[in-house]
Nucleic acid binder design. Structure first.
Lengths: 203, 203
DNA sequence: GTTAGCATGTAAGGAGTTACATGATTTT
DNA sequence: AAAATCATGTAACTCCTTACATGCTAAC
């Protein structure tokens, strides 16, 4: 999850850890609270070791000693392998892809996903939420007499949220099928807006 | 979280692990997927060591060799210390009490919580959700131009869910203040429906 | 020149998962 | 008696957190 999110954000622009954390918080604010540094920095090191990102900014790095940013900061940049990795993570869908968190992260990077994959993920998520919805309906119809009023109220509220999300997903799926971007008229471009040559890099 | 839920369920009736898992799934179906055995059994052992529950059912246990259930099963029962522990966990409110999961578990056992605590938790949760809501509003008003349509749609959907939950909480708080049980006319009893004999004061 | 906040990291540990191993009971 | 399902458990691991330690940079 974090790996996907970091690679996705670094594809938009090189950043240092602190900044990354803030961007993560705004982009994934709906999904989860801000990540802690205790996770962020070790993960960045891991991605670096794997060759998916490079670090630059202070004495030990290869190039750019005191250039892109102030000393002390370490600016991370995605590599070509990192972009491949990101694309692979985005497209592959295991069961965790349809969890609240997994779906949220995938959705947040839909602008870099092709339409077929978007549809696959939206439909998978819909199936997942429908299953949960059916489970809640079953409980409410079959076990409502042995559950207390508060527990029932919780289930009702959960059921309502499921129904609402299914409707939301239906709408998104319809839009995807007819080529519209979410709640907007028509997208000027189809998927993966960046990536040809370096448009926004060099900063 | 799990600890609270297990103690709460065992307060309703003695159960073996497998059963506990199913009950957990129906009671907390809105909150999280079913717990895995790899967590459940070690946790049961831990609660046992702490003296909050006792195990009975097969050769090594103190009493009841082939009585309450079939051999092989281990039936767990809450102890007096366990009930105290449960009450303490229910009443104490750290920051995690207002998370999705923490709030859900506390709410699921509101029937065993006194009204003052219920109000405190509902209000804490409301504050938490309002904060998240404000964060999302800020992002939508301040950063909407540098975020893509999908990310924005995610934030909008999240904001909607927050607003909805706040309204739900408001309603529950109002009901609590006026002495009504959730979405029902009037409760016949006030909190702690089980637990005859000494009402949990003691100590 | 000292406080506040930006920025990077490590160590220890919590809370759970999956995969595996095993056996008892019920159904076919 | 074979297959399905109920039932208990362990080992290794993942992903994340909190608490701590440290240094740089800007503001007062």
């Amino acid at each position: 999850m974090l790996e996907l999110a970091i690679l996705g954000l670094l594809q938009e622009a090189p950043m240092h850890g602190y900044e990354l954390r803030k961007e993560l918080a705004t982009k994934l604010g709906t999904i989860r609270a801000a990540i802690s540094y205790g996770t962020l920095y070790p993960t960045l090191k891991r991605l670096q070791t794997a060759g998916w990102i490079t670090a630059a900014g202070n004495a030990d790095a290869d190039v750019v000693p005191p250039l892109t940013s102030k000393r002390g900061r370490v600016v991370y940049k995605i590599t070509a392998e990192g972009k491949e990795r990101f694309a692979a993570l985005l497209a592959q869908a295991g069961p965790e892809t349809y969890d609240d968190a997994g779906f949220g992260v995938h959705f947040a990077f839909f602008a870099r996903t092709d339409r077929a994959t978007r549809l696959r993920i939206l439909e998978g998520r819909r199936r997942r939420v429908e299953e949960r919805r059916e489970g809640l309906r079953d409980v409410l119809s079959r076990a409502s007499d042995r559950l207390d009023a508060y527990t029932l109220e919780l289930q009702r509220h959960g059921l309502d949220a499921c129904e609402r999300e299914v409707r939301w997903l239906e709408e998104l799926i319809t839009n995807e099928r007819s080529g519209r971007s979410p709640s907007g008229p028509v997208p000027p471009e189809e998927s993966v807006p960046a990536d040809p040559g370096p448009p926004e890099d060099r900063h």
